[in-house]
Computed example of a mutant assay.
Amino acid sequence: MPSNTFSITAAPGTDIWRKPPTTNVFNAPTALPSSPSGAALRTAGPLASFRSARLSFNFAPAAQYDQAGLLLSFRRRGDAGAAPPAKWIKTGVELYNARPRLSTVSCDSWADWSVADLHPAAAAAAAATGAGQEEIGWTTVLVEKDKDGNGTGVWVYRLVRNAETGEEEKVPLREICWVFGLEKLEEWEVDVSAMAARPEKGVAEGLVAEFGGLEVKWAE
């Protein structure tokens, strides 16, 4: 279990999603750990100084699009508290067509969405045998600034611990290239938090998600 655990309860009808021509929903609850160990955790600052953010989470999805994970909100300086933020990235796990999927949504002007099997072997077995939904278990994601010969962007990873070496391996999920290409980058700030959502409105109860191990790194 990760350190500094906390929870979020997302009511039915909550989501973070933007789709043309008119859908712009940003009413999902967010949270931060109340008492991080050591020095106070800095979770917001100039976008140009952002280096990485990681978070672990666990929940039991039941309804289509139930989700939990890491949220990065991008706002111009002076727009703090504005809802919804101008741009955002969320990455975590989402229930889609009865299977938990690794899910990343990137929203520049409008949102786009990518999914991958959370447990590929279990998903294949379930498809072959008709077995029930697999459990999620504690999952860790990382969003990290990356620079290569083609320019600067961010990579989204799932972190998986190697059973033999004990070391964490970064499983690439998605590269997002618009973040550090924003006009007047020095005017943008980023805010990091945990999020959970239950978009389905016809559900009686809220979705409870557990989180821990939030780490955010900035340039010195």
Results as ranks from 00 to 15, higher is better:
residue 97 N to M: 15
residue 88 W to R: 08
residue 91 T to N: 10
residue 99 R to D: 05
residue 77 R to L: 12
residue 62 A to G: 11
residue 79 D to R: 09
residue 79 D to A: 15
residue 101 R to S: 03
residue 82 A to H: 01
residue 98 A to I: 12
residue 104 T to D: 08
residue 86 A to G: 05
residue 92 G to Y: 04
residue 103 S to T: 09
residue 95 L to F: 15
residue 72 L to A: 14
residue 89 I to S: 03
residue 70 L to W: 12
residue 85 P to K: 12
residue 64 Q to N: 13
residue 100 P to H: 08
residue 73 S to Y: 05
residue 86 A to T: 13
residue 69 G to F: 04
residue 93 V to E: 02
residue 64 Q to S: 07
residue 87 K to F: 06
residue 78 G to V: 12
residue 62 A to I: 06
residue 68 A to Q: 01
residue 101 R to D: 00
residue 58 N to V: 07
residue 101 R to H: 07
residue 92 G to W: 03
residue 59 F to W: 10
residue 96 Y to D: 07
residue 66 D to Q: 03
residue 69 G to N: 02
residue 101 R to Q: 13
residue 72 L to S: 13
residue 90 K to P: 11
residue 82 A to Q: 06
residue 82 A to F: 00
residue 69 G to T: 01
residue 66 D to V: 08
residue 73 S to L: 10
residue 73 S to N: 03
residue 79 D to P: 07
residue 94 E to V: 12
residue 67 Q to N: 00
residue 74 F to R: 11
residue 79 D to F: 11
residue 80 A to V: 11
residue 101 R to K: 15
residue 61 P to T: 05
residue 88 W to Q: 04
residue 78 G to W: 01
residue 87 K to P: 01
residue 70 L to A: 07
residue 96 Y to N: 14
residue 73 S to I: 13
residue 86 A to L: 10
residue 103 S to K: 06
residue 95 L to A: 10
residue 75 R to Q: 11
residue 82 A to W: 06
residue 77 R to K: 12
residue 71 L to Y: 14
residue 91 T to D: 12
residue 92 G to D: 10
residue 92 G to I: 03
residue 80 A to T: 05
residue 64 Q to E: 12
residue 91 T to I: 14
residue 60 A to Y: 12
residue 101 R to E: 00
residue 67 Q to M: 08
residue 96 Y to E: 05
residue 89 I to F: 05
residue 72 L to T: 14
residue 63 A to C: 06
residue 91 T to A: 15
residue 74 F to K: 11
residue 89 I to H: 04
residue 89 I to V: 15
residue 89 I to C: 05
residue 96 Y to Q: 05
residue 80 A to L: 02
residue 89 I to M: 08
residue 60 A to S: 13
residue 95 L to T: 11
residue 99 R to G: 06
residue 90 K to S: 01
residue 97 N to I: 13
residue 67 Q to C: 04
residue 71 L to V: 11
residue 90 K to G: 14
residue 63 A to L: 10
residue 80 A to C: 00
residue 60 A to R: 13
residue 101 R to C: 10
residue 70 L to K: 10
residue 96 Y to W: 14
residue 77 R to I: 11
residue 96 Y to A: 13
residue 69 G to W: 03
residue 65 Y to G: 00
residue 66 D to F: 15
residue 73 S to K: 09
residue 87 K to G: 00
residue 100 P to V: 03
residue 104 T to Q: 05
residue 87 K to Q: 06
residue 77 R to P: 03
residue 83 A to F: 01
residue 70 L to S: 09
residue 85 P to F: 04
residue 86 A to C: 05
residue 103 S to W: 08
residue 63 A to M: 02
residue 60 A to E: 11
residue 93 V to C: 05
residue 86 A to R: 09
residue 91 T to E: 10
residue 82 A to Y: 04
residue 103 S to L: 01
residue 82 A to L: 07
residue 80 A to H: 08
